[in-house]
C-alpha cells in the first residue's frame, strides 16, 4: 500500500484502543499519575482545573493530531474523539 493511501486511512480511521472494552475511568486513573489526584497539577505540570471542559477537549484533540514530540501527544495518540469526550465528562463531573 502506498504511503499516501495509508496516511488517508489513518486519518479516516485513527488507531485507538479503548472504544468498547476498557472503562474510560481506568484510563483517567492513569492520567492522575502525572496530573494529580484532583488534577491540581504542580509547579511543572499545569492544573486541569482552570480549563473549561471545551478547552480540555480541544487541547486533547490538538495533542492527538499533533506531530510534535510532546509527551502528551505521544500518550494521547491512542485516544479517539469519543474517548476524549467521555474523559471530559468524567473529569469535569468530578473535579473539585
Amino acid at each position: 500500500m502506498k504511503k499516501s493511501k495509508l496516511f488517508i486511512l489513518l486519518i479516516l480511521f485513527p488507531f485507538h484502543i479503548f472504544a468498547n472494552d476498557i472503562e474510560i475511568n481506568v484510563i483517567i486513573e492513569n492520567c492522575k499519575s502525572c496530573h494529580g489526584q484532583n488534577y491540581e497539577g504542580n509547579n511543572y505540570i499545569k492544573s486541569l482545573k482552570p480549563l473549561e471542559k471545551e478547552e480540555f477537549i480541544s487541547k486533547m484533540i490538538k495533542y492527538v493530531n499533533s506531530n510534535n514530540d510532546h509527551v502528551m501527544s505521544r500518550i494521547s495518540k491512542v485516544l479517539n474523539k469519543k474517548d476524549i469526550l467521555k474523559m471530559a465528562d468524567e473529569i469535569y463531573e468530578k473535579i473539585e
Binding site: G41, N42, N43, Y44, I45
Partner: peptide, 10 residues
C-alpha cells in the same frame, strides 16, 4: 519539567 512534575505528584 515533565519528569519532576510526574515525580512530585506521585
Amino acid at each position: 519539567r515533565q519528569a519532576y512534575g510526574w515525580y512530585e505528584n506521585l
